[in-house]
């Protein structure tokens, strides 16, 4: 081997190979962790589908409880992830769990909405996911916001199905909630990124929900404004 060739191979490419191999190993471990997380996530999504077909409070309550239990698995997963991701390299591997985190954030936001009727804040979301005050992983703002946008779409569907099930108060609560969310998002200067694209879909959700409310109101299913407010108040206090 000539001198330049030796340098190219041993000094430049061998260390690079080691670097790639080490990185692949970390990625493998992460992938396995996320695979389990995604499995639990799918189960949660299935559990929560009950809201679209059942009006029975107890069934919904049970679904929420079950989802909360399933979050235990998620927290275990993120605990493990925290140990695998090297310090300040969150964004090096972020692609592996970004999507799952967004969905999980949505699930957390949905159960908080069902329980209390309020918008989940970032810290609560991080706590539910088990990403709060971790060393090397966190819930980043974009994923949290993306979760909220997914929630809006799900709530638009929920409003429609609630009417089908005869619950005429739910759409009012949802309408107010999503309108507030929409107002909030309008305060952000979103750049031309994925969050922006997803946000552009929010207005369709808002519109859909308002159409439901409109349909209810022209049929006199919401008698007066006062009643409507009372109704939303009642759902909130549940």
């Amino acid at each position: 081997m000539s001198e330049p060739q030796k340098i190219v191979i041993t000094d430049i490419f061998s260390p690079f190979q080691e670097y790639i191999n080490a990185e692949q190993e970390v990625r493998e471990v992460i992938k396995n962790i996320i695979k389990d997380v995604e499995k639990s996530l799918r189960e949660m999504l299935i559990t929560l589908q009950v809201i679209h077909s059942e009006i029975n409070c107890e069934l919904i309550h049970n679904a929420i409880l079950k989802t909360r239990e399933q979050f235990e698995e998620i927290r275990k997963g993120f605990d493990a992830l925290d140990k695998v991701v090297p310090p300040s390299q969150y964004y090096r591997y972020n692609d592996h769990w970004r999507f799952a985190t967004q969905k999980l954030c949505f699930v957390a936001a949905l159960i908080v909405f069902l329980e209390k009727g309020v918008l989940i804040d970032q810290i609560t979301a991080a706590e539910i996911l088990g990403l709060h005050q971790k060393e090397n992983v966190h819930l980043n703002l974009e994923d949290y916001l993306m979760g909220l946008l997914i929630l809006a779409t799900e709530l638009a569907r929920f409003a429609v199905n609630a009417v089908t099930l005869g619950d005429y108060n739910r759409p009012l609560q949802i309408s107010k909630f999503v309108a507030e969310l929409n107002a909030g998002f309008r305060l952000l200067n979103l750049k031309n990124d994925s969050l922006r694209k997803r946000f552009d879909a929010l207005k369709y959700d808002v519109k859909k929900i308002e159409e439901v409310v409109y349909d209810l109101s022209i049929r006199g299913l919401i008698s007066t404004n006062q009643n409507a407010e009372q109704a939303t108040g009642v759902t909130k206090n549940e």
Partner: peptide
């Protein structure tokens, strides 16, 4: 191209 409704 929906507009944001009255309520929103």
């Amino acid at each position: 191209k929906p507009l944001v409704g009255k309520q929103a």
